[in-house]
Amino acid sequence: MADFDTQVYSERLKQDLTLFNRWQILIATLGDVDETADLLEVVEKILAFDIHESTMLRIANDYWFPSTHWVTVAFARLAETASLSNTETVLPRGQKSAELHFDEWPNAAFKFVPAPLASGGFYLEETAQELRVLYWDIVHKRFYLDTQQFAKLVQTEAVQLAGVQALAIFQKRLIAIAEQLASEEFSIDLPGLAAQHQRDLVMVERELPSVVLDSLFVTAAKQQFVLKRAQGQQIGVEIAVGEIAIRLTQVFNDSGHQQWVYAIVDDNQQVTIFTLLQQLPFFYQWYIAHIDQVGLKDKREVFVE
């Protein structure tokens, strides 16, 4: 493995053909820009350049890198400013696309892959399990969390080993990146990721058959947790986990339809639903078994299996 150095690469490009001059300026800009808007503009131009003008050069030049590489580099820039925890961009030997290593998860690496969608965009996925974290479409300004695969990712060995704190840092990092993108009018959808917004997390299905809650009751009871009936007039259930509570309630949404939602009740606002999926095997086991009903509602249409 070797560190990828944007500046060194841009210097090499400068020596090449006239066409490369423009290319070099773009790459150099990618390494220099501070403002999110400028960064996004330059990476968008790089992607356009890659699509429209690079075909011949790609074949001829060993140092050509695909779009996923530049998306990775741009994401790394955003990730660096979004967290005090370091982000490293590493080019694995023999590969053409860099990987991201976040300091909080020393045993995991991430890479971008093209999304097989007509509208384009890229998935950020963990390399060992190939589990997606999110979808990033720079051209159409979309940034969405894959709640299903992220839930599976938090249960993987690498993330388990890193622990609660690592997950908290990673979630905060993604939220901070999303804030940068939101300021550039990106559409953002990161359900369940922000510790401050753990109420009204909408489930995929509006109606929950009784058997699904029976299953949660039994799964929880096997690990000495008790699924209690909701207090007061609300229809729902609750599990206390120390000072934290997982609440599932049926509410009326803005359209007047009934809808089941989660609330993670934590007075300290440090825990998210993903923290609990990471830490509570019974909750994860139930969640995954019924994910088509109780999974968090996300922008499923962009996540192609």
């Binding site: 058997v211 029976d214 299953s215 009751f217 039994v218 009871a221 096997k222 008790v226």
Partner: peptide
């Protein structure tokens, strides 16, 4: 699976 759940639920209820 539904039958299993029903039996396990009964057992869990009695245990609690």
């Amino acid at each position: 699976e539904n039958e299993l759940l029903a039996y396990e639920k009964d057992d869990a209820l009695r245990q609690l």
